[in-house]
Design a protein around this nucleic acid. Structure first.
Lengths: 348, 348
DNA sequence: TTGTAAGCGTTATCAG
DNA sequence: CTGATAACGCTTACAA
């Protein structure tokens, strides 16, 4: 064994008195090679502890077998689950995943895209940051012939595939559920409405109200950041209204939690007096003493599907870009924070 | 601009009628180059939208500027925070992070190490899986001259640096805290004692008891997995004892949560009748209506320090391997699940 | 200060 | 079926 473990096909070729080309062919299971030579090569390779140098291979082939994933934050359950999905699906195909986070800054996002590109990734998966308002860096990815796939937070760019959930439906489902629990004055803690996902959740909410003969009151809509503090603040503002709501559909689990904590201080009973639903199925929602109803975005599935779309596109022999838009169905998870069915039984 | 964005130094050299070597030198700020040429090259590079091909560079230099991180699970807050710390520290130095998970399987771990090695990473950060009982794959990393760094879950291998927290101290601190709250019969929900970290937490617990004149009762030690269900089961078993404990130091936040849920069913008041402390400062512990006391392992810091150790070693001109063992201090986070100080005031 | 040429480890093309 | 050779894009002795 050589000192530093750098065994190359040349070392094997010397040992076997064949050419490096032959070794390469044998290793790659090229059909036009005698089975004797192949076996000889494999044996020698194993014995000498040969490992292919993926860097050289990548340089030669133009395919690095690396992909980049860019997300706002890596330590959000939603995003880390998506990454896990991508990794599980792509790993068996020999791909590695390089992870970057933008902290919601477009400048960082642009930089990450650039570094990933000169690292020669074969494709980029991304969820755009809140502040992204340009598309030059996305077009550059396409210009370099790399596959670009958006998940969850997307922009509509020709040639770019995307995997998202139906946020409209999610908002609709959650709101309809609150209505079914007897709530009449349903508020909404919205996210940044410039982001498509939050806009859609909002629209789903509004439509569910209308379809059920309820009026959407602008006073009932509060813009929030996705944090406990922001949720608490919104709850306080909400409670200053003359006509107080009897439910809230929150576009984030964190704001839902903040609201619950704040409303409890006011002596409000949940779900008796007030129902609430969050969004994202963050792990903590399940663990609370009052488990929080929420929307599951099935991030693992989202990641796996995004990876499948990538695999389809990256190997496509055709030159034309296929564009695939996948929309997943969200799943409503009903928990105690909005479930009055058990209560009714008790009352009867 | 060329079609596919593949602008090389040759394209620049042709345009400027200089050699590729000159372009390379200019781009790398090699001192022996005239400032005129340098500027010319930079201007042309920008104009032609040239981007260095890191693959070629890596092949030439033997440094890929990629590192691998191997963890049991990526979607545990503790691990994703460490990864974030590594990424934040290494990013500015031009490194990319490739993430792998083992799902606690040694076979997967070995495989991951091998693929990372032939991807030519410059170093590997890892937390070993529960089932790891061989060290061949670690030695291979060292044989290939790559830097290996353990964090949290380590093995003692000559030449390998590690960054861990003082789990003994953590166990000691938590137990001592429970004692300070007046608890006399303190149980322990242990993890797999074959893993150093859990062994140390256990030992810290035992020593704190002894140092405070309490006896460590073997009946009070329950082996658990890190899950809510396992914690609930342990709590049930614990409550079958004649002499019931009045506190538990749990080596996991999940088991602590399971115990709380179960004990509440028995009508136990926490912290009045029973105190409990978890481990890891998982996000949910803070959000509970009864916030759970826990140990913060400062994972972000752990990741950053691991990265710093890597940077020191990877650039070390000396051939000899430096071995650095960093032990961080854990931080006890006291919350309601074990804080009787407020109660006492109320009682007085 | 700049150019020439070799080489990093592979694979593809073209002969034989 | 196998071998020689060029090429992927970059860096770096060695020359000039």
């Amino acid at each position: 064994m050589k000192e530093n473990g750098k065994v190359t096909i040349y070392d094997i070729s010397k040992k076997l008195n064949v050419s490096a080309a032959t070794v390469s062919r044998a290793l790659n299971n090229n059909p036009k090679i005698s089975s004797k030579t192949r076996e000889l090569v494999f044996a020698a390779a194993k014995e000498m502890n040969y490992k292919q140098n993926r860097l050289a291979q990548a340089l030669k082939s133009g395919k690095s077998k690396n992909v980049g994933v860019i997300v706002p934050y890596i330590n959000r359950n939603f995003f880390s689950s998506i990454i896990r999905g991508i990794e599980e699906e792509l790993g068996p195909h020999g791909y590695h995943v390089i992870i970057c986070q933008t902290h919601e800054q477009m400048a960082t996002e642009v930089e990450q895209v650039n570094t990933l590109l000169n690292t020669q990734v074969d494709g980029i998966f991304m969820s755009i940051s809140k502040t992204t308002n340009k598309t030059d860096h996305f077009r550059k990815v396409l210009n370099e012939g790399k596959t670009l796939i958006f998940f969850d937070r997307k922009l509509d760019i020709p040639g770019v595939s995307s995997v998202v959930i139906d946020d409209f439906k999610a908002g609709y489902l959650a709101t309809e559920h609150l209505i079914s629990q007897g709530c009449k004055r349903i508020a909404h803690f919205a996210g940044d409405l410039n982001l498509e996902i939050y806009k859609n959740r909002h629209d789903g909410y509004v439509n569910a109200l209308k379809d059920n003969g309820l009026k959407a009151d602008p006073d009932y809509i509060f813009t929030t950041l996705s944090s406990v503090e922001s949720g608490a603040a919104a709850a306080r503002k909400m409670w200053e209204l003359k006509k107080k709501p009897d439910a809230v559909f929150s576009a984030s689990d964190y704001t839902a939690l903040g609201a619950i904590q704040e409303l409890r201080k006011f002596g409000i009973r949940i779900p008796e007096d007030f129902c609430i639903s969050g969004f994202s199925n963050e792990p903590f929602t399940k663990y609370m003493e009052l488990p929080i109803s929420t929307i599951d975005q099935t991030p693992l599935r989202m990641g796996k599907i995004a990876a499948q779309v990538f695999l389809e596109q990256v190997d496509s022999t055709q030159k034309l870009t296929i564009e695939k838009k996948v929309v997943l169905s969200p799943e409503l998870v009903v928990r105690n924070s909005s479930d009055r069915s058990l209560l009714k039984v008790a009352v009867q």
